[in-house]
Design a protein around this nucleic acid. Structure first.
Lengths: 219, 219
DNA sequence: AACGGTATGGCACACAGTGCCATATAGCCA
DNA sequence: TGGCTATATGGCACTGTGTGCCATACCGTT
């Protein structure tokens, strides 16, 4: 998940990139070992030998450094969606972009990346302020994805609510599936794939099946 | 939306309740007038003539006092769901509980309650930290609602994922509908009802219609 | 080699939030 | 009525986050 922006050009740029990565890595290590709240910014900057003031020039706050990797993931996801073939149906493009990026981040990279990914997710989920911020990021990602779906379908941005509904539906299913997967402590990606497919089937049943009352009720 | 917990018994209890209400009201007035970030806790407690230390005995922080009314609303919603007739289908119970509580809070009460409700929603949506916290509250509400749905359907709590999917689907549709309603600046509840129904129809199309690729894709 | 833009460091400060202890007061019992 | 006890409150000191301001060091360029 490193070097997302590609190779830096100047010496200054490279140093900045290294400092930023060092801060994220040191912060994550501390967060996972001591917990988010128990970790102070002073400890993070001490580990990287950077001043406190400099930290705030790289990140707006503690939240941002904690969610840095997650935000990179979201950026990759959005990129993958943008580069999906135009003839794919919206939901198909969404799902394939998701699995594509997920596989690239978790399976690939150095071993243990999947483990760290899962541990970070657990920590975020267990830290109220991080959970809140990550949900806010999700909403923002949904907005951008909906805009992209609208673009690729040739719809005028705010006129059709279907892109927004599709994207939020996708994230809803994914969240329920991820919760179930995480809760089960399962680590194998194949288990997650199965859960996701079952969840989509269940969602179909929930919205259209007899379980809701033979039809979508009119209030 | 006041006196949610019913009439207080002792003199002490009543005074506490009055202090709490005064703090919420003063805070909301300041937040709406000056903005959330620009309002300090010192200003809030000065308006109610209470010490800073006391404030933190009523609320865990600034966020909590800002979202106090929203949390009361959520509690009412959950209550309404719990008292819905058992023969209603889950989604029907959910939608009727929602409209019921919404009508009670916005239409009823003193005039202008709808206006204030809308202004607070806008402020929360425009204040990053409040938006984040309110989304976290939503997730928590979803959990409790899913548990209630599971209970009324006689399902073993963690075994079936349909309650979770149904509840998150409901909130997804409502969020898209509310966004659209708020954005349009519409104030009439009838407009919202129409948007909600249309959104449900669109969601049906999105999940099952040809727009997604003639079927739910298999990854 | 000198210059200009930029990254950094070191304050000082405002504000949120917490722990501790002293004081005041409601509720209760003799 | 008078006193006792539990509880609510206020005051204070302290930690930690986040920001504005200015001096300094360094990269990149001419």
């Amino acid at each position: 998940m490193r070097d997302t922006a590609g190779t830096a050009t100047g010496l200054r740029e490279r140093k900045k990139e290294r400092t930023r990565e060092a801060l994220v890595d040191a912060a994550q290590e501390l967060f996972l070992r001591k917990g988010y709240d128990a970790t102070t910014i002073d400890e993070i900057v001490a580990a990287v030998e950077v001043s406190r003031r400099t930290f705030f020039r790289y990140f707006a706050g503690k939240e941002e450094v904690a969610l840095a990797r997650a935000m990179e993931f979201e950026a990759l996801f959005l990129d993958a969606l943008t580069t999906r073939p135009a003839d794919e149906a919206p939901l198909t493009a969404l799902r394939r972009a998701g699995t594509e990026v997920f596989a690239r981040v978790v399976d690939e990279e150095h071993d243990g990346a999947g483990q760290e990914f899962l541990r970070m997710r657990r920590m975020i989920e267990d830290t109220p302020v991080l959970l809140a911020a990550s949900l806010r990021n999700m909403i923002e990602l949904e907005r951008r994805m909906a805009a992209e779906i609208a673009r690729r379908e040739g719809l005028t941005p705010g006129a059709d609510r279907r892109p927004a509904l599709l994207v939020t539906l996708y994230h809803s299913v994914m969240r329920v599936a991820m919760d179930e997967w995480t809760e089960g402590g399962a680590l194998e990606a194949t288990g997650l794939v199965r859960i996701i497919e079952d969840a989509w089937d269940d969602m179909g049943v929930v919205l259209t099946g007899r379980w809701t009352a033979d039809e979508i009720p009119r209030a």
